[in-house]
Design a protein around this nucleic acid. Structure first.
Length: 349
DNA sequence: AAAATGATCAACCGCCCTTAG
DNA sequence: TCTAAGGGCGGTTGATCATTT
């Protein structure tokens, strides 16, 4: 709403942090812990806004930050996660302990994208080049991540996306229909001749699974043939996660795949009675929708899906607590022919 | 040797959501 | 219920160094 940014106050330092500032921040955090970032400015004399302090801590000073090159495993995971989630760096970072969203974002733009274009990343340290960066702490960091120069980033993205058609994620921007930075459609893979659309809302739910530690799945949801079951809302819709253990197993298989054959997921998770139930999709992220769904936690799911026995009560709430692989697969397997534009121009199934 | 170009990375910006008062 | 501050996130920028011309 045009609110002034917290960091726009006069008298605050900007740019690279100095070792002295780092020490002041660390000293404060040692005593008071994280949070209340704005207090740091008042109580320590650090001439930085709270937001800047938080960023410095989160992406640099935190003791569990992992330095050094990304391993092949890490890179592989980043690629696969990006294929699923797009540029949701914080979610991807959540699956890579010690790596920050900024690191991964930089790494994606510099190394992975470059490799995809056939230009392997140059390791400046290994090639003997000392990276004498902006300040002492930077020198000490031995970070190896990076970001493509902004002036060329978008242009490169479109180029690389095209060139990544075989093995790399296909999240292009050409067919996105954004209403805001966090609401809208993400393109899926290029499958044969067509792009398909996936709603971010589905990705939100997917993300929650990725974000979980998979340890507290209720055994009570096991069935006779658990691996065939639908991730469903249960009787108690208040708190339990609605996924079957076996889905987690299946999910691991999916994560271990290269995602180049989404149809292969059908071999892992059998098509249930809902495999073709995706009739209409009304992703609703942040605004209050006609059915009362609001905020990023809620998702309005396809009508036919909601008519099934697996859903009950308020569809917003249940949609939030469960995740339906089959509806996702329907999206992934759909073709352009199955999509039509609704009144607002948004493509729907 | 110097200038131009490319690569890297920390930090900033602006938007959005959550929460406290 | 409203408002502002705090916090989180993705996109972008600018400083710096390496490499190429």
């Amino acid at each position: 709403m045009g609110r002034k940014t917290v960091c726009s106050k006069d008298g605050l330092n900007k740019g690279a942090w100095t070792p002295v500032e780092d020490k002041m921040l660390l000293d404060y955090l040692k005593i008071h812990g994280e949070g209340k970032w704005s207090n740091i400015v008042r109580e320590t004399g650090v001439k930085r806004c709270g937001k800047s302090c938080r960023l410095r801590w989160m992406s640099y000073l935190r003791p569990d930050i992992k330095r050094g090159n990304f391993s092949d495993d890490e890179e592989d995971l980043i690629i696969r996660m990006h294929k699923l989630l797009g540029n949701r760096w914080s979610l991807i970072a959540g699956r890579l302990p010690g790596r920050t969203d900024n690191d991964i974002k930089n790494y994606w733009h510099t190394s992975i994208a470059k490799k995809a274009r056939g230009k392997p990343k140059v390791d400046r340290k290994q090639s003997g080049a000392a990276s004498n960066l902006k300040n002492q702490s930077t020198i000490e960091s031995h970070c190896t991540t990076g970001v493509v120069p902004a002036a060329t980033a978008s242009q490169e993205n479109s180029d690389q996306d095209h060139q990544l058609s075989v093995a790399m994620p296909q999240f292009t921007t050409s067919n996105l229909q954004y209403e805001s930075s966090s609401k809208g459609l993400a393109s899926g893979r290029e499958d044969n001749s067509s792009d398909i659309m996936m709603y971010y809302d589905y990705m939100d739910d997917f993300s929650k699974i990725l974000d979980s530690d998979f340890t507290d799945m209720p055994k009570s949801y096991e069935t006779e043939s658990p691996s065939k079951g639908l991730a469903s809302g249960g009787e108690d819709s208040s708190s339990n996660s609605m996924m079957y253990y076996d889905y987690m197993e299946d999910f691991s298989k999916i994560l271990d795949s290269d995602f180049t054959e989404f149809s292969g997921i059908h071999d892992i998770i059998s098509t249930g009675p809902h495999s073709n139930n995706t009739d209409a999709v009304n992703g609703d992220h942040h605004d209050v929708s006609s059915n009362g769904c609001k905020s990023r936690e809620t998702t309005e799911f396809p009508e036919k899906l909601l008519e099934s026995d697996h859903w009950s009560g308020n569809k917003c709430g249940l949609a939030d607590q469960g995740f339906d692989f089959m509806s996702l697969l329907s999206f992934l397997d759909s073709t352009d022919d199955e999509w039509t534009a609704d009144a607002s121009g948004t493509k729907v199934l």
